[in-house]
């Protein structure tokens, strides 16, 4: 019964990841994509516990889940710091033109 619960849960998790992957694919801004990656990373930590239940080795896979959650957090923080105040070249040129016009 535990195995069936784990299998159904893992399949449902994979199915519900599809809309999130759609958001990563078409996301209008880069922040949407990072948000989707963050959600999928958190759910992968859960999925690792599910896989551990299937293999009857939960105590080992929980450690993997902890390290995966840590990597996910660090990645989200680093990418948000990187995207902070990063303007594309086109926007920068447009802003410079506006400034020239004001002068």
């Amino acid at each position: 019964m535990t195995h069936w619960f784990a299998i159904i849960m893992g399949a449902a998790l994979f199915t519900l990841m599809i809309p999130v992957i759609y958001r990563i694919w078409v996301g209008p801004t880069s922040f949407d994509r990072i948000l989707g990656v963050n959600v999928i990373g958190t759910k992968t930590a859960v999925l690792l516990v599910v896989i551990g239940t299937l293999f009857d080795r939960v105590e080992m896979f929980v450690d993997f889940a902890i390290s995966y959650a840590l990597l996910n957090f660090v990645g989200a923080i680093v990418i948000s710091r990187y995207l902070n105040r990063t303007i594309s070249l086109k926007d920068m040129e447009a802003r410079e033109k506006e400034g020239a016009r004001k002068r």
């Binding site: 801004t29 922040f31 989200a76 923080i77 948000s80 902070n84 990063t86």
Partner: peptide, 18 residues
């Protein structure tokens, strides 16, 4: 960690004129 990363992402987006 999840609220922290959400907060950092929101702040980056807001300072990036989103």
């Amino acid at each position: 960690t999840s609220p922290t990363s959400s907060h950092a992402l929101m702040r980056a987006a807001f300072e990036d004129d989103e």
